[in-house]
Write a protein that binds this DNA or RNA. Structure first.
Length: 390
DNA sequence: CGGTAACCTGGGAT
DNA sequence: AATCCCAGGTTAC
């Protein structure tokens, strides 16, 4: 991550001196199969154990996993684009690249992965499958969505492979603590600052990667330091949430992971006890890391989508907490058990950065500034909502 | 209990 | 140039 201005050195940005991997240097053949990167000299890491230092196929079609529709679309800020159709990121203590394999059609094109570094290759492969949520079939889930919603059916062919990840809860929580009232670029910078507190994993394409820091490592950074690093008021959320988690019986990581067994309502309530976590951030954590497939993060985008396609009677109304839960319910009653996965697709379809993928007639046109008469319209909408809620 | 203002920061629009 | 507005919201009043 390149920073705009010089920053004070971070607490543990020094590379921990790890024992060198005991494997022999890679052969020429292996070198040829290394992922493309602008700076080859930075390819420092290797698998400490098992052999496969090469690209291996992931046994799925592109329609089950699109890398550009899954990694840079706001559910994780930890992955970097390291090639034309290649992304690199950390999963636990594994550092992995993924890239698309071109084919003539969907069935012959797919995804390959490259394990740059891992304590155990088999565990790396297993962790990758888990992280990508590959036990769930996108095709199965989407079929029902298209049947029940016209907007989804229109959008889906252009956004094939937009998958919901299954991230580590601690990692997910701290990423979305950074997201409040913020933009993707700055969130990515901030997540980079936090990540650098974790153990160094290696460098690919000029980007340094770290294992996500433990709560103990996170507890070493002060609110003042975070403010100097540009976190603004979110600095106290980070510090406060670390402390709150450390007080949990059995440890915060355990406590967070245990939420996977609860009902969505309980999960949201539990998460909202942490400082800086409100309904929206809680829903993101629930959906992207806690197996709550019907959690609906209602933000400005989803609000727009809902008022445009799902609940047109809301057009012009304001986004209030009360209405947010109504929108979430509307999504669930329309899309069912995996409503969060549908929301994710509609959300991506609304992202300015993804508009290029869509035919212009599918692009949502941003509501231009409200004219004077629009004010009245809003009053009417508010009235309608009031009736709706009785 | 529901509605509002304040909160850090940076980029783009007015 | 100065100011406003917005960006995947939450908190405190």
């Amino acid at each position: 991550m390149k920073r705009q201005r010089p920053k004070p050195p971070l607490l543990s940005s020094k590379r921990p001196s790890r024992p060198q991997p005991s494997t022999p240097p890679s052969s020429i053949h292996h070198l040829r199969s290394l992922p493309s990167s602008k700076t080859k000299r930075n390819l420092t890491c290797q698998s400490a154990q098992s052999p496969p230092l090469s690209w291996e196929p992931l046994n799925i079609q592109r329609s089950e996993l699109s890398l550009p529709l899954t990694f840079p679309t706001g559910q994780t800020f930890r992955w970097k684009q390291t090639g034309p159709s290649q992304f690199t990121g950390p999963i636990k203590s594994h550092l992995i690249s993924l890239k698309h394999i071109d084919g003539h059609d969907d069935s012959s094109s797919g995804v390959a992965f490259f394990v740059h570094r891992t304590p155990d290759h088999l565990q790396a492969v297993s962790a990758l499958h888990d992280y990508l949520n590959l036990s769930l079939s996108l095709a199965d889930i989407w079929r029902k969505f298209s049947e029940s919603d016209a907007r989804f059916a229109q959008l889906a062919p252009h956004l094939a492979g937009a998958r919901v990840l299954r991230q580590d809860p601690v990692e997910c929580l701290f990423q979305f603590l950074c997201s409040s009232n913020n933009n993707i670029k700055r969130i990515t910078n901030m997540v980079g600052v936090i990540s650098s507190l974790g153990d160094y994993l290696g460098s690919v394409g000029g980007f340094d990667f770290h294992e996500f820091p433990s709560l103990e490592q996170l507890s070493l950074v002060s609110e003042e330091q975070l403010r100097r690093d540009g976190f603004g008021y979110r600095a106290k959320y980070i510090v406060g949430t670390v402390k709150a988690l450390q007080l949990k019986p059995g440890g915060g990581a355990e406590w967070l992971a245990s939420l996977r067994d609860l009902e969505l309502r309980e999960v949201i309530d539990a998460l909202c006890t942490l400082p800086g976590v409100g309904p929206k951030v809680a829903a993101c954590i629930a959906l992207f890391s806690l197996d709550q497939h019907h959690a609906i993060p209602v933000d400005t985008h989803v609000w727009q989508i809902a008022s445009r396609y799902l609940m047109p009677e809301l057009a012009g109304a304001r986004l209030t907490p009360k209405l947010c839960s109504h929108v979430a319910e509307a999504f669930v009653s329309k899309f069912g058990k995996y409503a969060g996965w549908a929301q994710n697709v509609l959300f991506i379809g609304d992202l300015p950065s993804q508009k290029a993928l869509l035919p212009s007639d599918l692009c949502s046109v941003k509501e231009t500034k409200l004219a004077s008469s629009e004010y009245e319209k809003q009053e009417v909408a508010v009235e309608l909502v009031r009736k709706l809620m009785d």
